[in-house]
Write a protein that binds this DNA or RNA. Structure first.
Length: 436
RNA sequence: GACCCCUUCGUCUAGCGGUUAGGACACAUCCCUUUCACGGAUGCGACACGAGUUCGAUUCUCGUAGGGGUCGCCA
């Protein structure tokens, strides 16, 4: 039975690097029918653990990385907060003391006597990496105040929670020999490791909390991304599935996942490509799903939805014009109100030709005569109006678009007119003709 | 400083001794088109360097350079 875990320290917001580490663990568990455990490493935390870990949980849930054991879920190997496992650590430390593998400093800190033998890490990504007998000072396991150090609790919990595999960032590779030394001291078998490449900024500097794209909630949830798109992009940062396609759903990604194919070189984060993935997923949404996804952003822009169906159709009509949900309000605001602003340069164009008002008026007359109001009938009316005025429909379209939306770009004119309705269409033309 | 990992277009990457070095993002041009987009087509653009091994190296070995990481009573 495969057991993997994601063991973040609670920082408040899930970091992309952490998210992808969680992702690979999750993928491996799901592919093999294993168990994915979430363990919060809050040994340091005298500071509001629940608050801080809530951000991590939120990010994981958003990405759809559900855990089988852990906070809010329970399990047979809990508690899953390290701050609540002190007795277990005390017990393990006692074993080491009994074996003479520790000694106490003058101030009370407890150190582990390294075996000082060559230690080889068998890694699914990096292969066998051998570390020569160390010359580093012995490692501290417990601070004078009785709290424990990461390396110790990490190993103890991996033993206690029966972890079989560990996917973690490559920044841990250099310390893995210490962990193995500890496993050996406990007479336990180390898990199989897979040290995954780091995610770097576009300038190849280390990505920190402040950098664009680093925080799941701050950059993606609030940035207008769809979870599936981020999931997909993150998978491909450091791993290439054996398929031609890049846009792949969770199920496909899961079935294709192969740890030995994870790259061993770091990858730079590319927001443009991540956005491109988002655009792909946006376009695949149904009108209803798209509205659900876009709703928070419409709300934030102060747009009031009175008709769900129209709102869904409106949002759907601009789906291939944007790559982020955050861009949607700017493209659809006029569907939800009639006091929309007019783009300045288009006002100029409208006034440039003296015949424009007459053309708009002709269209209004044609619209008014319609008894039926569909995209097709709107289109027919426009063609008739154009014909009557001896111009091409193409000459009328930009004027109408501007009148109905105040913008020079957007969905098809008949789509707009149809969605806002006949009455509103006529009012909007009137309002535009009254512009001075 | 010591140790560890890494090195193909600007970016993500395919390649696993013999290829016109392929794809995706981005960029450029064209087509489509009532706008903006989408879509389609084309183009631009890379094997870090130096030695080996070999009939032949992007591919294997070593070295150099560069990048990243680790050496905490942080995680």
């Amino acid at each position: 039975m495969i057991r993997v875990r994601f063991a973040p320290s609670p920082t408040g917001d899930l970091h992309v690097g952490g998210a992808r580490t969680a992702l690979f663990n999750w993928l491996y568990a799901r592919k093999n029918g294993g168990t994915f455990i979430l363990r919060i490493e809050d040994t340091d935390g005298a500071r509001n653990t629940d608050e801080a870990s809530a951000g991590i949980l939120k990010g994981l849930k958003w990405l759809g990385l559900d855990w089988d054991e852990g906070p809010e879920k329970g399990g047979d190997y809990g508690p899953y907060y390290q701050s609540q496992r002190k007795d277990i650590y005390d017990r393990y430390l006692a074993k080491l003391e009994a074996d003479g593998r520790t000694y106490v400093e003058e101030n009370g800190a407890v150190r582990f006597k390294f075996s000082r033998t060559a230690i080889t890490v068998h890694d699914m990504v990096c292969g066998d990496v051998t570390f020569a007998p160390t010359e580093e000072p012995d490692m501290t396991l417990r601070r004078p105040d009785g709290s424990y150090i990461f390396h110790f609790v990490n190993v103890v919990d991996d033993i206690e929670m029966k972890m079989t595999h560990v996917f973690r960032g490559e920044d841990h590779l250099s310390n893995t020999w210490k962990h193995i030394d500890l496993f050996n001291a406990f007479g336990a078998t180390p898990p199989t490791y897979a040290h995954i490449p780091l995610i770097l900024n576009s300038d190849s500097s280390k990505m920190s909390k402040r950098d664009a794209g680093s925080a799941i909630e701050g950059s993606y949830m609030n940035g207008g991304f769809l979870p599936d798109a981020v999931f997909n992009y993150l998978c491909l940062l450091g791993w290439t599935p054996r398929t031609e396609a890049e846009v792949l759903d969770r199920q496909t990604l899961t079935s294709l996942f192969e740890p030995s194919e994870i790259h061993s070189s770091n990858a730079r984060f590319d927001m443009q490509k991540c956005s491109w993935f988002n655009a792909q997923y946006l376009r695949a949404q149904s009108p209803e799903d798209l509205l659900v996804a876009a709703r928070p952003f419409l709300d934030r822009a102060g747009l009031v939805i009175t008709d769900e169906a129209v709102a869904a159709a409106a949002v759907f009509s601009v789906k291939e014009k944007v790559s982020l949900l955050t861009e949607i309000p700017d493209w659809v605001h006029y569907f939800f109100r009639e006091d929309y602003p007019y783009e300045a340069d288009v006002v100029t164009k409208l006034k440039a030709k003296p015949e424009n008002p007459a053309l708009l008026q002709a269209a209004a007359t044609a619209f008014a005569a319609q008894t039926e109001w569909s995209e097709a009938s709107v289109h027919t009316a426009i063609e008739e109006a154009a014909k009557g005025a001896s111009v091409k429909p193409g000459a009328l379209m930009p004027l109408l678009r501007f009148a109905l939306s105040g913008q020079s770009r957007g969905p098809g004119v008949s789509t707009i007119a149809h969605l806002i309705g006949k009455d509103s269409t006529l009012r909007r033309i009137e309002r535009t003709l009254a512009l001075e």
